[in-house]
Measured scan of single mutants.
Amino acid sequence: TTIEWNGTKITVDNPQKAKELAKKIAKKLGLTVKVHGNTITIE
């Protein structure tokens, strides 16, 4: 699972952990999480 935001890509083996990490990042930055299959985008 890949997390993408602002040109940065982070690959996380565990999809559940990836989703939790994305939510934490999005919350800190005041952004939203969008899931597209194996890609999680923070916008």
Score class of each variant (00 low, 15 high):
residue 1 T to K: 07
residue 1 T to V: 15
residue 1 T to P: 08
residue 1 T to C: 15
residue 1 T to L: 11
residue 1 T to F: 14
residue 2 T to W: 04
residue 2 T to Q: 07
residue 3 I to L: 04
residue 3 I to D: 10
residue 3 I to N: 09
residue 3 I to C: 13
residue 4 E to M: 07
residue 4 E to L: 05
residue 4 E to R: 06
residue 4 E to N: 08
residue 4 E to G: 04
residue 5 W to N: 08
residue 5 W to I: 15
residue 5 W to E: 07
residue 5 W to L: 15
residue 5 W to R: 10
residue 5 W to Q: 08
residue 5 W to Y: 13
residue 5 W to G: 08
residue 6 N to V: 08
residue 6 N to D: 13
residue 6 N to R: 04
residue 6 N to Q: 13
residue 6 N to W: 15
residue 6 N to A: 08
residue 6 N to M: 08
residue 7 G to M: 03
residue 7 G to L: 03
residue 7 G to D: 10
residue 7 G to C: 15
residue 7 G to V: 08
residue 7 G to I: 05
residue 7 G to K: 04
residue 8 T to M: 15
residue 8 T to I: 15
residue 8 T to W: 12
residue 8 T to C: 15
residue 8 T to D: 10
residue 8 T to L: 14
residue 9 K to M: 14
residue 9 K to C: 15
residue 9 K to H: 11
residue 9 K to D: 04
residue 10 I to K: 01
residue 10 I to P: 00
residue 10 I to H: 02
residue 10 I to V: 04
residue 10 I to L: 05
residue 10 I to M: 05
residue 10 I to D: 00
residue 11 T to D: 04
residue 11 T to E: 07
residue 11 T to C: 15
residue 11 T to K: 11
residue 11 T to A: 05
residue 11 T to G: 02
residue 11 T to L: 12
residue 11 T to F: 15
residue 11 T to H: 13
residue 12 V to E: 01
residue 12 V to N: 01
residue 12 V to Q: 02
residue 12 V to W: 02
residue 12 V to T: 04
residue 12 V to M: 12
residue 12 V to I: 13
residue 12 V to D: 00
residue 13 D to S: 14
residue 13 D to G: 11
residue 13 D to V: 11
residue 13 D to E: 12
residue 13 D to Q: 14
residue 13 D to L: 13
residue 13 D to C: 15
residue 14 N to I: 04
residue 14 N to Q: 03
residue 14 N to D: 14
residue 14 N to L: 05
residue 14 N to E: 03
residue 14 N to W: 06
residue 14 N to P: 06
residue 15 P to L: 13
residue 15 P to F: 15
residue 15 P to A: 10
residue 15 P to Q: 07
residue 15 P to E: 08
residue 16 Q to H: 10
residue 16 Q to T: 11
residue 16 Q to I: 12
residue 16 Q to V: 11
residue 16 Q to F: 10
residue 17 K to D: 07
residue 17 K to M: 12
residue 17 K to E: 09
residue 17 K to Y: 12
residue 17 K to C: 15
residue 17 K to H: 10
residue 17 K to G: 04
residue 17 K to Q: 12
residue 17 K to S: 07
residue 17 K to P: 01
residue 18 A to L: 05
residue 18 A to M: 03
residue 18 A to F: 03
residue 18 A to E: 00
residue 18 A to C: 06
residue 18 A to Y: 03
residue 18 A to H: 01
residue 18 A to T: 02
residue 19 K to R: 13
residue 19 K to S: 07
residue 19 K to H: 13
residue 19 K to C: 15
residue 19 K to F: 15
residue 19 K to V: 14
residue 20 E to T: 09
residue 20 E to V: 10
residue 20 E to S: 11
residue 21 L to Q: 02
residue 21 L to A: 02
residue 21 L to P: 00
residue 21 L to I: 12
residue 21 L to S: 01
residue 22 A to S: 02
residue 22 A to Q: 01
residue 22 A to N: 00
residue 22 A to H: 00
residue 22 A to D: 00
residue 22 A to R: 01
residue 22 A to M: 03
residue 22 A to K: 01
residue 23 K to Y: 09
residue 23 K to E: 15
residue 23 K to R: 12
residue 23 K to V: 12
residue 23 K to Q: 13
residue 23 K to T: 11
residue 23 K to P: 01
residue 23 K to I: 12
residue 23 K to G: 09
residue 23 K to M: 13
residue 24 K to C: 15
residue 24 K to S: 09
residue 24 K to G: 05
residue 24 K to V: 09
residue 24 K to D: 06
residue 25 I to K: 00
residue 25 I to E: 00
residue 25 I to Q: 00
residue 25 I to D: 00
residue 25 I to M: 06
residue 25 I to G: 00
residue 25 I to V: 03
residue 25 I to W: 04
residue 25 I to T: 01
residue 25 I to Y: 02
residue 26 A to P: 01
residue 26 A to I: 05
residue 26 A to K: 09
residue 26 A to L: 05
residue 26 A to F: 04
residue 27 K to R: 11
residue 27 K to V: 08
residue 27 K to P: 02
residue 27 K to Q: 12
residue 27 K to A: 11
residue 27 K to L: 11
residue 28 K to N: 10
residue 28 K to T: 07
residue 28 K to Q: 11
residue 28 K to V: 11
residue 28 K to M: 12
residue 28 K to F: 11
residue 28 K to A: 13
residue 29 L to I: 06
residue 29 L to Y: 14
residue 29 L to C: 15
residue 29 L to E: 07
residue 29 L to K: 08
residue 30 G to V: 01
residue 30 G to K: 03
residue 30 G to Y: 02
residue 30 G to M: 02
residue 31 L to G: 15
residue 31 L to T: 06
residue 31 L to W: 06
residue 31 L to Y: 05
residue 31 L to S: 05
residue 31 L to P: 02
residue 31 L to H: 08
residue 32 T to V: 14
residue 32 T to R: 06
residue 32 T to K: 10
residue 32 T to A: 10
residue 32 T to E: 09
residue 32 T to Y: 03
residue 33 V to C: 06
residue 33 V to M: 07
residue 33 V to S: 02
residue 33 V to W: 03
residue 33 V to T: 04
residue 34 K to D: 03
residue 34 K to I: 13
residue 34 K to S: 12
residue 34 K to T: 14
residue 35 V to Y: 09
residue 35 V to H: 05
residue 35 V to R: 04
residue 35 V to E: 05
residue 35 V to Q: 08
residue 35 V to T: 06
residue 35 V to D: 03
residue 35 V to W: 06
residue 35 V to S: 04
residue 35 V to C: 08
residue 35 V to K: 03
residue 36 H to F: 05
residue 36 H to V: 14
residue 36 H to Y: 04
residue 37 G to T: 03
residue 37 G to R: 03
residue 37 G to P: 02
residue 37 G to N: 07
residue 37 G to A: 05
residue 37 G to D: 06
residue 37 G to K: 04
residue 37 G to Y: 03
residue 37 G to I: 03
residue 38 N to P: 04
residue 38 N to Q: 07
residue 38 N to A: 07
residue 38 N to E: 04
residue 38 N to Y: 02
residue 39 T to G: 03
residue 39 T to P: 01
residue 39 T to Y: 07
residue 39 T to D: 04
residue 39 T to K: 09
residue 39 T to R: 10
residue 39 T to A: 07
residue 39 T to E: 06
residue 40 I to V: 06
residue 40 I to T: 01
residue 40 I to F: 01
residue 40 I to M: 02
residue 41 T to C: 08
residue 41 T to A: 04
residue 41 T to G: 02
residue 41 T to H: 08
residue 41 T to Q: 06
residue 42 I to Q: 00
residue 42 I to G: 00
residue 42 I to T: 01
residue 42 I to Y: 02
residue 42 I to M: 07
residue 42 I to A: 01
residue 42 I to R: 00
residue 42 I to F: 12
residue 43 E to M: 14
residue 43 E to K: 09
residue 43 E to T: 13
residue 43 E to P: 05
residue 43 E to L: 13
residue 43 E to I: 13
residue 43 E to C: 15
